[in-house]
Each structure stands twice: as C-alpha cells, then as structure tokens.
Design a protein around this nucleic acid. Sequence first.
DNA 1: ACGCAGCCCTAA
DNA 2: TTAGTTAGGGCTGCGT
Length: 814
Amino acid sequence: MDQKKRKGASGTPSSKRSRLTEDDDDPSSFEAELALMNEFDAEMKMEFDSQEMDAGPENETTSSKWSRPPVGPIDPSKDTLAFQQLDVDFYVGKHLAGMPGATVGPVPIIRMYGITMDGHSLLAHIHGFTPYFFVPAQPGFKAEHCGVFKDALNAVVMKDLRSNREGINTAVLAVSMVVKESIYGYHGNRKIPFLKITVSLPRLIAPSKRLLEGGFICPGYSQYGFLTYESNIDFEIRFMVDCEVVGCSWIETPAGKYKLRDNISKQGNDHFSPQSRCQIELDISWEDFVAHQPEGEWSKVAPFRILSFDIECAGRKGIFPEADKDPVIQIANMVIQQGDRDPFIRNVFTLKECASVIGSQVLSFEKESELLKKWSSFCREVDPDIITGYNIQNFDIPYILNRASHLKVNNFAFLGRIRDKISVIKDSVFQSKQMGKRENKVINMEGRVQLDLLQILLRDYKLRSYTLNAVSFHFLQEQKEDVQHSIITDLQNGNPQTRRRLAVYCLKDAILPLRLLDKLMCVINYMEMARVTGVPLTYLLSRGQQIKVVSQLLRKAKEQDLLMPSQKIETGDEYEGATVIEPEKGYYNIPIATLDFSSLYPSIMMAHNLCYTSLLNQHTIQKENLTPDQYIKTPSGNYFVKSSIRKGLLPEILEHLLSARKKAKFDLKNETDPFKKKVLDGRQLALKISANSVYGFTGAQVGKLPCLEISQSVTAFGRMMIEQTKNHVEERYNIANGYKHNAKVIYGDTDSVMCRFGTETVEESMELGKEAAEFISTNIIATPGRLMHILVEMNLKLKSVEYAVFDEADRYGS
DNA sequence: ACGCAGCCCTAA
DNA sequence: TTAGTTAGGGCTGCGT
C-alpha cells in the first residue's frame, strides 16, 4: 500500500491475491498506453496543421499547449455570451455605478464561474441582489409603519455591531409588507401579512434575527418576540432560488446588458480591473442575465478541463511524510477535456534529472522550490475547472501548500481563480449520522471544484478497501504501477533511470483517478444532481443531504408565496420505522419470488398528500370546520388535508422528480449518442436518489425542517402496505381459490416481500409473481377499513425469482 | 453458561 | 456552525 495514502484510506493492505494479479500484469503496459496517446496526439496535430497554418515546431518544454484557446474580440453591445456555470459564491465589495441595490457602503456581489462552449473560462460579477428574510407582521401593523419599523430595527442592529470596519452605512435597507403563508401546517389557505426585511449584507441576517426573536420593540407596538422565516438560507441558495438558477446550468448575458472587465480600457479604476484569472470577466445586474433551465439544448455540457495530479514525497523509512521535513520529489499531471478519451496534457515534474517517458512531458528541476513554483504556475496556466486526484483534499494539496510555505516559495498558494486570494488549509469536522464523524481539511480554491475521488468513493460506494490500488482493480480491473512505497526514496536517490521508474508510477497514479471518474461517470452524475436539486456542484461535495431538499422546497414554496420557518421545531420522540416480517427459517428448494414496491415512500407521500402544508391538528379541523371527507387520518394517528383542499408541496416535488425520471428513462431509451445517454442516465439516477431523500429530510430530527408527523405517517403506511401485500398474496393464491398450492410470504422488509408460491419451476413462479404484483398494484387497500382507489401508482413489481435459503446452517457450518 | 446492554455495521 | 431515517444482527463486555 502506498504510504502517503494511508491516512485517508482505511482498509487492509493489498492481499496476496492482488500481488499475484499484479505480477500477471505486464509492467510496461501503461508505458505502451502512454506512448500510444502520443501517437494519437501527433495524428491529430498533423490533421490540424494541414488545415491551419503551423505555429512552428512544438517545443516540449514550452507551455504553449497548457493554456486555454485564446479569446477573440468581444463586443458587449453586440455579443451575447453563454456559459455553463460551475460554481457560485459571493464577496463583499463596493457598489458599481448603474447597478441596482445599495449605492453606499459594502454590498454583496455574487460571482458565477463558468465555461463557454468554446472552452473559455469566465467570471460574472452579479450585482444588486440583496439578502432578506421575513417575520410575521404584528396584528394591526399597517404598511405605513414600515418606515418606522425599518429605522428602529436598523438602529438596534447598527448598535449591535461590534466593529464596523467595513463601514456599514445602513444595516436594514428596507422593510415592506408582503402577503405570505407559513409552510408549516394547514391553516385554511389564508395568507397573512409578513414583513420582508432586506439587509445590506448576508452576515447581518443573523444578528437581525437574534434581535427580533429577543423581543424587538417597534415604536407604537408592544414588545413582540418575532419568529423569523427564511433567515437561515445561504445567500447563494437564496440568489439561485430567486433567479431560478440551478447548479451547473447555462447562463446568458445578453448583448448590451453587461460590461466587460479588461486591463486596458479602465486602468486606474480598480472597480473595472479584472479580479480573476478567468479569460473573460464581466459585470451584470442580477435582473439582466438569463438563466436557462437544463432542458433541451441547454442540457448540454461545456468542455471542462479536469486536472488530475499526484505527488510523491521522499519520506523517511516507516514515517508518514511531514511537509516540514520530507521533500516533494515528483508531481504528475493529467489534464483532460470533459468527454475526451485521453488527457491532452500529460506531464511529470521531477526533482533532479529524469530519463524521458514517451507520451509524457518530463520537466526536471534541480531545486524543489523551483519545481513547486513551476507547478503552481502550471496550475494557473491550465486553469482547470475541476481538480481531482486520490486523497488530494486531505493529503496532496495540504502537503504541497505546507511544503511551499516551508520552503518560502513565492506566490505558490495562488491556486484559485481570484488573483489576490491565496489558498489556505482549514480543518473541519463534519459529522452526520450517515457519514459518521469525519475530519477533513478544506482548501479554498475559488472557481475550481475539488473533486477528490477518494471522498466520492467514501460517499457513494461501500467498499471493503479504499486504497487506490484496490479501487482501481475493483472498477477498472487495472492496477497501480508496481512500486513499493518503501523504495520511493531509494528510487529518487538513484539515477535518471530509477527516477524514471518513479515517474511512470506517479503518472499512473495521476491517470487512474481520471479513468475512475469516467468509469463511474462522477462528473456527469454530480452535475445532473446539481441540476435536479438546484444547488451548486460544490454543495454536493461539501454539504449534507438536507440542503438539496431545502433548495427544492424553497423553489416550490416561492411559487405559492409560502415561507419556511427558520426556528428549530421542537423534536419529539423517536418514531416507529419500517416493518420487518419475521423470516420463516428453512431450506427452500423451490423458487422464491421477490415482489417490491418501486419508490414506496415517495408514492405514499404523493398518494396521501403528506406535506408540511397539509398537516392538520384537531384545533385546525374544528376551526376550519373540516368535514371527514376533506382530510385523512394516517395509521399513525396524524391528520392531513386531502389534495382537493390543498395540494402539498412535497407531493408536488416528488411528482416532478418522478415524472422527470420517467421522461429521462424514456429519452434514454431513444437516445443513440453515448455521451447524451450518460447524461440522461445520470439524470434519472439523480432524480431517483432525490425522490428517496425527501422522506429522510422530514425525519431528520436535527434538521432544518423536521416533521415527525409526516415521517411516522409514511412508515406507518408502509407497514400497512407490506402487511396487506402479504395478506393479499396469501388470501388469493391458495388451493381454495383453485391454485395448485398455498402461497406463503416467508419474509418482508420495508418495501419488499418474498413469496413462496409453492410451484416447482421458476417459470410458474414468475407467472404468479407478475400476476400478484399487478393485482395488488391495482387493488391495494390504502386506508384502514376502506378500499381506496389510489391515483398514484403503487408500483409493486416482480423483482426476482430465485432459490433462497433462510437457514441458520451457515452459522454453524455445513 | 446465560442474559442483557451497548456498540458497530448493514439493509432498506 | 452543521448533521437523512429505523430495524435488526453480530460481537463484546459485564454481571450473575
């Protein structure tokens, strides 16, 4: 096992078995592949050269190949720019003339980083969007009191500021009366007045909220503890929701609506000079850009650049490398354009001379600091959109940053796209029930997405071992080059040939993550997940599950003037989960059919209109004079209004997700282009996962908006469905009804049952299984004691028929 | 030897 | 400042 990876990767060291297979593998095969890539490049280049005028002989040591294609002239008055945004963040800056929003004091400015279809990097500064939140208006509050309220709140918030180095002029910019409704609980479809409070900076929301909750006194009104609404929404999410921007979507800046930043025209005015290393940088008002939904033409994917790299250090024997002691001796890099088969940049930076490697550029340095300095400028020149590697987040990037700072390499840490922003390492502890305690390092790199393959595998795949070698073998049937970590230092201290061996090893470690990324379709899948759920790509990598549902909920809520409360709802007790039918142990030498519900929990939520907005209590039932046909009582004893009274948001979200999934699957069938197929498959997967996570969100007791009434109703309905499926199967498929055998449900869990129909052959069981699934799908009893026709498909399907063994035999051995 | 509680892991 | 759920099996350690 590679020593430097040990920290992040858990699991056992490579077994004897993998050593054997390694020996089977021809050690030179990777070199042959590299060489082949070189030949392929040469062919392409010849084609290119014969068409275009040659720019002179390619010099292997120049960096001309590294840069992005040059940008032609852009006329902002005539040219509309389109780009796929990859990341969204914001900064606090100064007002720009002509833009909406506050004109004095610091203002928040949104940044969108993206790539055009021509592969040019772009940064858009989006001006004028302001943060806000809501509180319910006090009884009798009139619109004309808004001014007084605003001034009074502004005064207390300003007074609360400890320091005001940014020179905040006004904290509360505006207060206006709006008519809204809380998302939580059904209250007669009546909208009530709320105050929309607009503040000048996102970070002022928290103190404003605190002061309002603590009992703010508006002149003319009594003291009042305000509950706040939507005061805990990330500014980026707020912006994206309001502007209908989803993650990784396409954005257009129409001709005449934006201003370009360049070095020449506006020198001396620091407002207009570029802030980033992007090729195109522009300013636009938040009201002027066009956000495309990722459909049709706009579901395309821009030609991203993905940089994969791997470093080697000369560690001391048996000691984990330390950045202040052990030098970085090699860095291998692979840069691929999204969609291409092979990386178009392949190089390795080596300390001391290294013999050439066909198919790869070799850059040798006598001094380690030179190596690092050159790598840093290489990174800026390549300008990758996505940086990947294996355990780069917790090892490679922190190591080179620490090493460069130890060696005092100037300007090394400028790895992001913002010119004057250096990348720093922060420690973070991320804790969730799903992922457990996880200590991670976080490195800021504005405008570039760090897609650490190890992190993705830990997140999405359950594997026995997470070493790069094991993972590569598992997914690619391919392995690392055979170099024991213990001899790395010896190879470095040898000669150009031994360092060459190390270089080949390092190159392989750089290309494997790219191959895994491609094989597992990570980029496309994550991109589609960002589009479906509406959050930036980086959120999917750094945040939990909840933010995805919040984003979708906010979008739907906005359509109906609904507001999400920010206050933590008091969490009740635990609730009852899924049912498990006690297995009937035994040896079955006849076929067992497995029937399972597809998307059971989402279907239940849709079928019974379970949502925050439809949740009832006895008080409301009486107050609104609801008749029993207008609401339901769930098996867990909770009440919800039917969709005829008020259609729930969650059911709407789920319908959208599942119908979009059906469409994606349909399109997938008809699509012939393999790349578009991948995109569609990624989408349908993202849609399925998203639909299933909605239930979890309502049950998250430490969450943004838990609702145990919903989650316990869902599981209660689920238990009922399983029970009834069992009963239906057993009541229908028996000798009394003319079947050859008595069917028996031998096991069931959450959304599936296993049936023994008693037939000898698989075919017969298949037949009966299919029939039973269809029968029950159309005839399920869904409410206690009442036959209910369900509009939502409760899709019970025959999953498999096989010989199943339920026995304790294996525990005792055979 | 056995029952029980607590922890960790997996399935759904 | 940030986190999807519950059920259930296997294992360990403790007390009787």
